[in-house]
Design a protein around this nucleic acid. Sequence first.
DNA 1: CGGAATGTTGATATGCCTCAACTAAAGTGG
DNA 2: CCACTTTAGTTGAGGCATATCAACATTCCG
Lengths: 239, 239
Amino acid sequence: MLKVLTQKLGEHSRLSNEDLATIHRLSHFPRKLQANEDLIRQGDDPKVSAVVTSGMVARYHLLANGSRQYLSFHMAGDMPDSQSLFIDRMDHAVCAVGAAVVALVPHKELLSAFKLRPSLGFAIWRETLIDAAIFREAITNNSARTMRGRMGHLFCELFYRARASGLTDGTRLALPISRVQLGETLGMSIATVNRTLNGLRASRAASLQRGKLHIMNWETLANISQFDPGYLHQKKPPM
Amino acid sequence: MLKVLTQKLGEHSRLSNEDLATIHRLSHFPRKLQANEDLIRQGDDPKVSAVVTSGMVARYHLLANGSRQYLSFHMAGDMPDSQSLFIDRMDHAVCAVGAAVVALVPHKELLSAFKLRPSLGFAIWRETLIDAAIFREAITNNSARTMRGRMGHLFCELFYRARASGLTDGTRLALPISRVQLGETLGMSIATVNRTLNGLRASRAASLQRGKLHIMNWETLANISQFDPGYLHQKKPPM
DNA sequence: CGGAATGTTGATATGCCTCAACTAAAGTGG
DNA sequence: CCACTTTAGTTGAGGCATATCAACATTCCG
């Protein structure tokens, strides 16, 4: 079940056999999440960290008016709450996007594993730094790009990351996200979400229908959104 | 010279005397930066990490059209390029905002210090996680708040962080940032930067003149921007 | 099959960007 | 130290992109 984690870490870090063995010795408990169910809430102080096993989860800020700002999306192998290892109170929440399964690993075991094998800790530290790079890119995306560019960039990133982990189906990716959520991710109104989606489909770049993202033309989409995968820091680019 | 670092880490982590001694044994070389000078460029692969000694530095993305998206601001004690410890190619640049001095510490020494004393590594890891929390807040700020709220929130955050490190002068803080940079931070045009600044001053909340941020009324400003410092994860809030 | 949630599209209003003209400040060389 | 140049800041007018509102269509789910 933690195979997804070693695979993910392998995308950017070199792990020794000892490191791998240490990971596979960690206890872990599966937890199934329904679509939209919260895994962690803002203000929580969890004693376990989650590794996504299947499906997709998202981080979000809960705003004063009750609406949300989605911050990032996480798929198989990702640790969406790695920060809770070292930070007590959650400053954001994590919920399932569509149905999902996570494996819960006790903080205590992770921390002693890091003390035993620093290189393993460094790999997960690196993973959290890549998370931060993704956040930075989101700042730029939502602040400096057109609506079209924003949406295209999000689609490029999600598809690129999923493809690196072998989660895509040719040119398609399961992305069970609503229009409202897309708007709360990209900082646009629902009406604009729809019109932008229409535009991308009309340009034969990408479409999102019934929870499936279809990349119609990668070149076009990457061009529209100025997508440069460097910030994902993968060892070998799969495209 | 690394005193600023131990003080900063002390804001969120408990360090043993051994940890402190290990930090003070690190070699470090000062580097003076002129206003606007780059410390690191996008694409670099630095072998040293910087600790800000005085002044302020900023991270930014360089965009295709030559303009910038500023991502974060860092003051005394901060490590604006801690990520380069574990990630080879810089996905963003770091420059001085006004004149600044940094202390450069070789990666090799930091890494062996972490292996020797995991708790020290964990403290700096925690620091990078707080950085990530600040990035997340910037996503929300630039995506979900009004122009007024955005600017107010940035001012609150910078002032709050500076105050925690004893870098403020009553209600004033040196913030040698131009209108253009402010616009490239908050995703607004220069004209809007000015009008928003006028609005905040007219509301007697805050003003920015000749590189000095003046918090005229903290309550008002925090209210305007829905500022909640929880995400900064400091042990004891100074206000 | 019925009700609720989600998605779609048009009309209208408005906040922000763009452009432009101007002012103030800072830096430079004689 | 002052004239000159350059850079940064300020403000108004106008147009446009996007939010808002509203009506309706579709899908989902019990």
